[in-house]
Every structure is written in C-alpha cells, then in structure tokens.
Simulated scan of single mutants.
Amino acid sequence: MTNAVFQLSCQRNNYPWGKKGQQSLAVKLCEKTKEYAEMWMGDYPDIPAKSLEIGEKLQTIIEQNKEKLLGKKCIDKFGGQLPFLPKILSIQKAFPLQGHPNKSLATRLHQKNPKQFTDENHKPEIAIALSEFEVFAGWKPLHEIQPLFQLQPLQRFLPRTHASFNDERLRSVTQTILQASDDVIAGTQKALATVSREEYGQQAYILGLLGRLQQQYSQEDAVASIYIPADGIHAYLSGDIIECMARSNNVLNSGFCPRADRDSIELFSASLTFSTHSVETMLLRSEPSPKSGGGKTLVYAPPMSEFNMILTALKESETETIRSVDEPMVMIVTSGSRSMKADGETHNIKDGYVYSIGQGIELVYETDAGLEVYAAYAE
C-alpha cells in the first residue's frame, strides 16, 4: 500500500507559444524534479505525473489505492480518478484562439474521433496569475463590439440580414472572419492599422495589440484570476499562470495558429456561447478559505463541481494549518521553502515541489523566509 502523501515528478509539454529557457516559470519549477516547459500535475494519461520515489504513474497508483487516496465521496461523484488537472503555463506569445466543448459535444466528438478528442468530458478552467498576465477571454459587451464594426475595414464581415447586433450576429461575424482568405485578412489588418486612434475611441489599445500579434504570427494566422466556462472563447497572450481545469484535454482551435492546425471553423463557431459580456463575469475572486487554520489561506471556487483551488501565502517565520478534506489534493510550491507536516511525516519543500495528498490528510506548513503554495482539491 502506497503512502497517502508522496512527491510527484511532473512532465513537460512544449508549444510554440511557450517561453524559452529560464524565462519560463514552468522551466524553473518543473526542473526541480524532472523535465520542463508547460507543467502538468495530474493523472491524465497524455502527460502523466509520476511518483518521484518509485517512478510509477500517478494514474496507476490511484487505481491501486482508490479508497485510500480518493475516498468514497470522490469515487461516487467522479469515478476512480482525479476530477481535475492542474498546470503551470508560461506564455511568451498568444496561444491559439480556442474553446472547449461541453459534455454533450465532447461525447459526440470523442466517439467520432477519439484520437483527437481523447475523453468525453467538458473542460471549464480557471487561471490564476503568477506574474503580469494578459488574456483574451469571453466577449465584450455588445454595445462596445458594434462600434468597432462601423470601422470601414470591418464592415465587409457584417451579414446583410441581421437588423441588430446580437449574439447570433456575433457568431456569424466570427465565422466569416475565420473563413476569410489570407489576402482578405492581410488587407483588413493593413487597413485597420491606418485607422486613426480617434475612430477607435476608448478601444484604441487594439492598434497596439494588432501590431504585436502580427509580429508573433503571420498576418494570416492571426488579471488576477479568471474563470472560463466550457464553450468560452479565449486565448492567453502573455505571462505565467497556474491553471486548473476539469479532467479533459479536449480543445477546438481556430485562430492565432496556421490554417493547417485549425479545427473545423463551422464546428468552432457553432460551439461558442455568449454568456460573458463583461470583465466582472470573467473574474474569479478569492475568499478566506474555511480550510484555513490560521487565516493565511484563500480559496478560488469556480462555479463548477470538480475542484477548488487554495492559495497559502506565508511570511517570514509563519505557519499555517490546512484542515483535512474528504477528497484528494495536488499541491505545488511556487516560491519559498521549509517544511510540510502531513500524515505523521515532515517533508522538506521548496519552489517546484509537487505532492499528491490523499483524502482526509491535515497539512501544516512552516517557513523561515516565506512560502507560497497552491493546491487543487476535489469539491
């Protein structure tokens, strides 16, 4: 029988949008135990974490010790696996404009093409900034979108039939832009760059963003914490984040990437939802965590049932107790060092260390010079 608390070795995932070398926080944290780049910290089979001590996949360890590590509550609700997948991402340039299918669509796509869509689950997610972070997520309010399409270079994408600018018109415009030829996109971007800042009004920042994206990709390819629902359109632009999502790796890409890498534009457009039309609806605010024994832990609780994320931030010579939860947890130290007491043992910890914590385990953190720990747990 395995221990209920054990250190993980987390593996890499490389993408062209990632930061290079020591510029990447994913590098700095992941190299503490093994490889580096985008850092996955779960039992998902594509890029599984492993026990640092014995080299066994976390998925295999959980399968052999379900009751001890997951607990009955988690097994009954989510099955014999972690229901969440935490990651560290370091973004140098915009990654593909994307959305994640909901459960109904994910099931159909998995049955049709299991090689590309490797599970039947949805993929709502949260992103918590670890550095200055830029993200495109959701949609502007319609009253801010409509004036942009009064700019002469964008008028060609408007459908002729819609009388008002509503969600369905926005869906149609999105699909039309994505389906436009390379020459049309290049010409539109060139024309937009000549429009005066006064015509853009309060959205003149788009001029700067357009130039940056053109430098990152060819013209044709082209916070603190947020919550992105399934089917929510988004693209991370720059920065280091800790990301956590429901257990899934399903994605529909359509933009900020070569045409050969794009999924069906019709499918992407049809899957979009338009529930978010303001910054406030995207923000995920932290609150004091009820798991905190000393008041030094915050919780990020997205409107979904698979997981919560907690942040414990300690200053010099402080301690904190995390009360036991009835479900599994995965934690990572993002800065600082000293010790974690858990299940009768004391573990030396420092930045980059990742641990699997079985259900029902109380944690005690101690530090001399400061400590910052994030942990995802089933909820």
Rank of each mutant, 00 (worst) to 15 (best):
K28V: 07
E379A: 14
F274L: 09
C257P: 12
F268T: 09
V325N: 07
T2G: 00
A37Y: 00
T107Q: 14
L97V: 14
I233E: 08
S51A: 07
R171L: 09
S337H: 02
G360V: 11
L213K: 01
N249W: 01
N13M: 00
L58V: 03
K112A: 14
I226K: 07
Q175H: 07
S278E: 03
L89A: 09
Q116P: 01
G255W: 00
T33D: 02
L314N: 06
G360N: 12
M39A: 03
T188S: 13
Y205G: 11
F6H: 04
T281P: 00
R156W: 03
F136G: 14
D368C: 07
Q150S: 13
Y355N: 07
L52H: 05
K350W: 01
D326G: 12
K34T: 00
P96D: 13
T174N: 13
G370H: 10
S24A: 12
Q203L: 11
T367Q: 07
G79K: 06
L69D: 03
A186V: 15
L209G: 04
L158V: 07
P258I: 04
R160A: 11
V333F: 10
Q359I: 05
D119G: 08
L148T: 08
V330D: 04
Y377P: 10
G138R: 04
S104Q: 11
M1Y: 04
P159D: 01
Y36M: 00
T334F: 06
A191Q: 13
G336R: 10
P114G: 12
E280N: 05
S339N: 12
E198F: 09
A180Y: 05
A313W: 12
Y365K: 06
P328Y: 13
H122K: 12
S337G: 01
V27A: 01
P153N: 10
G336F: 12
M41Y: 09
N166Y: 03
L85G: 03
I265A: 12
K73I: 08
K93N: 04
Y227N: 09
Y236S: 05
A127R: 08
N65Q: 06
E168P: 06
Q92T: 00
I61G: 01
T321V: 15
L252C: 03
A378W: 14
T161A: 02
G99T: 15
F268P: 02
I242N: 06
R323Y: 11
L142K: 11
Y355T: 04
T276I: 09
I177N: 13
Q215E: 14
N253G: 12
V333S: 12
L69E: 03
A4D: 09
Y377C: 10
E31N: 05
S131P: 06
Y44W: 11
A163H: 07
Q150K: 10
C257D: 03
I310E: 13
L109I: 02
I61E: 04
S164L: 14
E366I: 09
V333M: 11
D261Q: 15
M304P: 01
E144M: 07
L283T: 02
S90F: 00
E35T: 10
I47Q: 00
M340F: 03
P45C: 11
I75V: 13
S24H: 00
I126Y: 13
R338Y: 06
